[in-house]
């Protein structure tokens, strides 16, 4: 009885707005419980991520971010090779996927009939759902031998392969988001452009693309976020070599990304060791980068 009264007073009352005070309203209890558990679970998970990477930051400080040697057994933890590898992989993926995806969006939104457009869209949505490990399988068995033979490389495992696989994975995201943005432009705006007497090309570059740009931009940032966190496919094709590319634009040698390092070394690092905490540091960097991208994507008025 006592417990119940305390519960009422401290758990349920504060949640109930003053206007409608149904005591122990089951709906409100349900909603409150759900919200509290969601907030708690997310906070606990992310809190422990920060907490367990703390020993590492305390021991080595922020300069690990530009250290270039990663030898866990010698207590050398330099993050630079993996960060550079991640950035390269993202860049390559974008260079391939952005023109293709954007062009596909323009073609399907401006040049296709409604039926075809819907068909393409459904196809793209389905493709966006293909699991990354399946892309990894394709990369390993189709892309790597192809790269190795066509470019006459020592091995097909390299940043280019990782970037290409990633581009395949983010293509649907870019395309669907850009298509949505183009479709959202109202008929009036299109017609007023027509009335100005500009041709198709000018209309596209002067009216449609600038109008759709905020949507396209969030699409790009979302796609970047997805590529950043992709693990399985990258891990299978990147070669996992913890070394800075030499020279820095050499993308045809095995390299490492943040995610592939976590995937490779997570099992071996014993819980509580410095190595474990360093990998948690990698995870934290990933999370911070991804949240940054996501915030940018939401902040529509930032670049216009």
């Amino acid at each position: 009885m006592m417990v119940r009264r305390l519960c009422k007073k401290w758990v349920i009352y504060p949640f109930i707005k003053h206007k409608v005070r149904h005591f122990l309203n089951p709906l409100k209890i349900f909603v409150a419980l759900g919200c509290v558990s969601a907030v708690l679970s997310v906070l606990v998970l992310l809190g422990f991520l920060i907490q367990s990477s703390l020993p590492f930051w305390q021991a080595f400080g922020i300069q690990v971010l530009w250290g270039d040697a990663w030898y866990p057994y010698e207590s050398l933890f330099g993050f630079l090779p993996a960060i550079v590898g991640t950035v390269w992989a993202l860049l390559i993926a974008m260079i391939i996927a952005l023109p293709c995806g954007l062009a596909a969006a323009i073609v399907s939104s401006e040049m296709m009939s409604e039926t075809w457009r819907n068909l393409v869209r459904v196809g793209m949505e389905i493709l966006a759902g293909i699991p990354s490990v399946v892309y990894g399988l394709i990369g390993l068995w189709l892309l790597l031998p192809f790269l190795q033979h066509s470019l006459d490389l020592l091995t097909g495992h390299n940043l280019l392969a990782a970037g290409m696989i990633l581009s395949l994975m983010i293509l649907p995201t870019i395309m669907v988001m850009s298509q949505d943005a183009l479709q959202a432009i109202s008929e009036e705006q299109r017609e007023s452009a027509m009335n100005l007497g500009v041709d198709w090309q000018q209309r596209l570059f002067r009216v449609l693309l600038p109008q759709a740009w905020p949507g396209i931009r969030s699409g790009i940032l979302l796609a970047l976020g997805r590529a950043l966190g992709e693990t399985m496919a990258v891990m299978l094709v990147v070669g996992s070599m913890d070394r800075l590319p030499e020279p820095f634009y050499n993308i045809l040698e095995p390299a490492q990304t943040l995610t592939s390092r976590i995937g490779r070394e997570m099992g071996e690092a014993s819980f509580g060791s410095l190595h474990f905490s360093a990998l948690m540091g990698c995870g934290l960097i990933l999370a911070v980068m991804a949240m940054g991208l996501s915030l940018l994507a939401q902040h529509r008025s930032l670049i216009r």
């Binding site: 976020g225 966190g229 693990t231 995870g283 999370a287 949240m291």
Partner: peptide, 11 residues
């Protein structure tokens, strides 16, 4: 939604 799944895995 933007946080990579592997980060949740680590947590």
């Amino acid at each position: 939604q933007g946080i990579p799944p592997i980060v949740y895995g680590l947590c």
